[in-house]
Each structure stands twice: as C-alpha cells, then as structure tokens.
Design a protein around this nucleic acid. Sequence first.
DNA 1: GCAGGGATTTATAACGTTTCACAAGAGCTT
DNA 2: AAGCTCTTGTGAAACGTTATAAATCCCTGC
Lengths: 344, 344
Amino acid sequence: MSGSPSMKDVAAHARVSLGTVSNVLNRPEVVAERTRKRVLAAIDELGFVRNESARQLRGGGSRTLAYVVLDTGNPFFTDVAQGVQEAADAAGLAVFLCDSGQDRGRQSAYLDLLEQQRVEGVLITPVDRADPRLALLPRRGTPVVMVDAHSPDHCSVFVDDVAGGDLAATHLHDGGHRHIAFVGGPASLPQVTDRLAGVRRAYARSGLDADDLVVLDTAALGIPEGRRAGARLAGLPASRRPTAAFCANDLLALGLLQEAVRLGLRVPEDLAIVGYDDIVFAEAAAVPLTSVAQPRQLIGRTAAEMVIAEARERGGAHEHRQVVLTPELVVRASSRLRPLNGVA
Amino acid sequence: MSGSPSMKDVAAHARVSLGTVSNVLNRPEVVAERTRKRVLAAIDELGFVRNESARQLRGGGSRTLAYVVLDTGNPFFTDVAQGVQEAADAAGLAVFLCDSGQDRGRQSAYLDLLEQQRVEGVLITPVDRADPRLALLPRRGTPVVMVDAHSPDHCSVFVDDVAGGDLAATHLHDGGHRHIAFVGGPASLPQVTDRLAGVRRAYARSGLDADDLVVLDTAALGIPEGRRAGARLAGLPASRRPTAAFCANDLLALGLLQEAVRLGLRVPEDLAIVGYDDIVFAEAAAVPLTSVAQPRQLIGRTAAEMVIAEARERGGAHEHRQVVLTPELVVRASSRLRPLNGVA
DNA sequence: GCAGGGATTTATAACGTTTCACAAGAGCTT
DNA sequence: AAGCTCTTGTGAAACGTTATAAATCCCTGC
C-alpha cells in the first residue's frame, strides 16, 4: 500500500490470478470479456501503472533510443533531433535527448548512463571521438550510430563537409574574393577541420595562393565566439583585412555579422559572410546570411532508422554503413554581389 | 553468455559470492582490498555493466528527471532546459528532454511513459493543461512542476506574463503608438492570453480606446506563422494598418519582421515590432528586436530544484509553491524612436 | 454419464539487483 | 583455552513483471 499498486494488488482486487492481469495487459483477446472488464475496473480504481523497470528486466527491451547532442542551443541539432523523433515514433520508440554541451565529461557520463539503462540504441554527435565507450558499447550490444560525424567502426550519417567547404570557398572566389578568413574551432571537431579542408581544396583547384587564407581558431561554435572573431576582423586595417569570412557554422556567422556591422563594416561590401547549416535564423539575420545547407531532418531520420535496424539485426553479423549526404549552397545577401547603387 | 554478463557471472569469475560483488559496487569500504581488486578485475574482464532496471526495481529510485517541452525548436526552451540540466546535475540526476511539439497526443504519451519509467519528477510546459494525467501523476507519487505556466494544483515557476504584456504595450504607447496589433495564438496557451491581457491592462490604465487593438490569432508560435501575420499586415492599406505589432514570442516577431521588410515596410518607421522571450537571435535580427526578456536559466534551475525538493519531501504533506519572476523590457532598434534623418 | 477438446485461468519460474541477518575466521583479553 | 569483538564474506529473500506449462471449466457428441 505504501508504494504504487502492483499487478498483484490489481489481481487481488479483481479476485483473479496475477497471470490473468498480465494477460489483460498483453494479450487481451485471450481473456473472457467479463473478467477483462473486471480487471480493467480494478486497474482504474487502484490507479495502477505498469512498472517499466520490471517489464524491461523480465525481457522486453527498453523501447528507448537516445540522441546525445553537441549543443541543444544550436537549432541545427534540434532540427536533426526532430528527424530522429519522427523515425523513432514510427517504430514505437521514445527518444531520450541528451545534451553533452560540448563537454567530454558529460558525454562519458551520458554514455555510461545510457548503457546501464539498456537503451536500444545510441545516436551521437560526439565531442570526443576518442572516448573508449564509443567502441565498447557496440561490442557489448548497444548499437551506436554517428550523426554528423564519421567513424569506420560505426554506422554513420553525415554530410560531405569537405564538399560543403569547397562550395562556400568556390562561391566566394567566384565573387572575386581571394583573401578569405575561415572562422571555426576547436580543431578537434572534424566538422571544423573538414570544412576547412574543403576551402583548401577549392584554393588548390583554382590555383590560388593558399597564403591568402586566414584561419581564425575559435574555442567553440557559438554566437559569442562569432562576435569575438568579428571584433578581431573589424580591428584590422582595411588593407590587411580579409574581404570575406567563411564560418564553420551559422551561430558563429551570426555573431560575427552582428559585431562586424556594429563596428561599422558593411556586409557584404566590406566583408562578405558565409555560414554553415542554414538554420532558420540565418534567413532572418540583419543581413540575410548565405549558408551551406544540410538536410537536417533527413540526417536525423536516416540515422534513427539505421540504429533501429542495427538493433533488430542483433545476432547476424552487422555491416557498418556510411551514408553521405550532399550539402547545398543557399546564396543570400551576405555574400551577394550588388549592382552599384548609391544608397548605403 | 548470450546477453550481457550479470553480477552472478562476475561473482563466479571472481570466485566470490553475489553479495560480495554487490558490496564492491555499493560499499567498497566493507570488502577487503584483495577481494575487491579481484572483483574489479573480473568486472573489467567480462565487461560487466550494471543493469539499471534491476537496480531500480529493487528499490533505488530512477535518478532521472524529465522536462516535457513545448517546442525544442524554440531557443527559449532550450535555454530553460539548460537551467534544468544544471540543477539536476548538481543533484546527481539525469534529465530526459521530451518534445511534445505542441501536440496534445505526444504530451499524453510522454506523461504515460514517464510515469511507467518512474522518473523522480516531471517538469512540464504543457500544451494541454486539461490533460487529466497532470493531476493524476502527483496524486500517485510523481511530482509535477509547471514551467512557464501556472496551476493551483502544482508547484510552478513562471514569469508574470500580464506584466510582460503591459510592459510591451506601455513602451509602444510611450512611443506614440495607439493602433497596435497583438499577434499570437492559439488562445489555449495561457502565455498568449496573459500577454494579451497585459496589453489590455495597459490600454485601460492609459485610458486609451481598446478598439485600437487588433488581435491577430495564429495557429502556433513559430516563424512561419509570423511570416503569415507579416504578410497580412503588409497587405493592409497604410491608413488602416497598425503602426506597431507586439508578438507573443520572438519566433513570431522574427517571421513577421522578415516578411514585413520583404514586402517593403520600414521597421520601425512604418511598423514597430516588439517580441517576447529575448532569445539570442532577437539581437541578431535584420532589425535588432525589442523584446520582453525572461530569466530563462533561472526559470529552469528553480523549477528543477522545486521538483527535486518535492520528490525528497515525499511523505510529509507538500505545500505547493508558485514562484513568479519578473520580466524585463529590452529596447532595441525595432521599436526605437529615431531622430529624423534622411537616410532610409 | 463420460471421453475429448476448446476456452479460460492459474501457479511458478525466471530476469538482475540490493539488503539484511548471519556464519566464519582472526586477533584479543582474561 | 574459553569468551569477545571485529572484519569479511555468504545466502536467501525480496522488487514487479512476463512466459510457459499445467490445471480447471464448460461443452459437445456419443
């Protein structure tokens, strides 16, 4: 009586055996109408709620997926998460959204917790790809799929970031820009280094001098870091200032844009800006932001479908799949060439 | 051998009894150094991972909180969620973030699921305050705290939305605006109706004619709905068009701003705009957005502390507390009076 | 009236922990 | 050498489900 009522209490109250209550819950068709009603009434009356732990202990899976995300403050990830939800919903699974907040310790803690909870599968955009847990979990039976990251030892869904970086740089080159700043960091994130690699590739292909590329390392990928980078750029004398900045994500770009404008630079005339991710807010920015778009929901949906498949496949040897999606450039005012006109 | 190894396997492997393994895990000080090492080695060797379901079944709580949020796509909520995380972390609890996506069905489904999981407490910004589960859960032992919403039957943390609406309207009145549009919906959300009530209160207090208030109902609180509202306003002849729009949140305001500008209105000259929440992106908007700020992280932290307290208090009769926080107006360009100058 | 047989219901054994009362030894004190 | 206390380790009983095999009931047909 102290805790919540159990099936045993329900059984007693309905003057039925425990097994019958279980049957009412799990295979109602097998129990007679009369008794079923009686049991349901008892359940209602006592306010019985199934204990998921016991159910799971007995054998059912957890019917739960988890998505460990780099930063819930970045709308990019919440959009991906929505795709995950969608696919999980369709499979009758719930999603545990975990925010590592770009903190390695939190990532480890969550992975431990999730393994203990015996979630059916883990989706993760890792802060720390070297965490041994990432290799351990699948070996012990919890499938792990990399989202927006790749690894030879896991299934993964990601967008070709090198191509994305190339796209952005090529666009800027086409607009006549040679002296470009790449803004992003930390370098431990492959998203950052790949996008930068794409820029380098574009320089190489066009036979341009890579010395014209300035790399501004940032401590994280948020708006504040973008502002700081903007201040640095605005502080340079015009002659030595890059004419364009390509940011590793839109948050950086928005911060940079904001600070650059505040400090008197005209965008795109004095400084063209290109972001990455094409979050909803890119379009609503002070100067609508050119950005490299990724199929966010698709990433999430695909990844979720992949863990689910891997979880079901359990037993048969699993072959890891890498799904590479293609980024797309969305050109807006922040990098658009304008016909000359007098109005500032 | 088929599933993951259990404590029994560890015990056998270390030639120790089951109880000893448990002791190593839960009260290491009580077992001799030698044996402890042997057991730890066995754990390592077998790759043993505690089964949280069993642990929980036996008696430990779930050490888990859940926050059911209205819309993860709205940065306001992810900021609140960060406050929740912070407080939960401090108490050694993990947070399950659930997105109802403004869908009543999803809200119910999550509440059921969470109760079955026996989470220690639920924080919720409800879509549907009438859902019977909201009353049922606490009665059955799962504390529920309302976040950014109030209810006499629960603890709650919210910001005085009437005051916020008043603040916004008063600011616009001070700027000379009489003909104002309130943009928001659905009316089932108290956030929306309270903010509108605040506007009405300001009209009444100033002795202004409330007929000058136009209410534009929206189906939801997102950017697309804001765009639609913007198009409607822009479509009106200047003579009948409100000179200012107060939006129930920043997403609406951003959408409205974007569309209004696109259709040729000047902000704030032709249309002043005030938003609500002061999300990070408000400041980075095309025209930096005036907004009513709420102490987001504080809301989350306070709410989490309250559920945790209520969960611990279990047994002693609980007295519900309502924590009301105060909103603050942040004035930016979108509603600022400008000295006349010729440049558009 | 009774064997055969479907339809219902029941009893019981897991699942993997934690806890708690107790047993086994070791080292003291008298 | 008997009696103590400590320190370690053990065994068994829960916790609330689900699955399975066995039991019971009520018919039907002969």
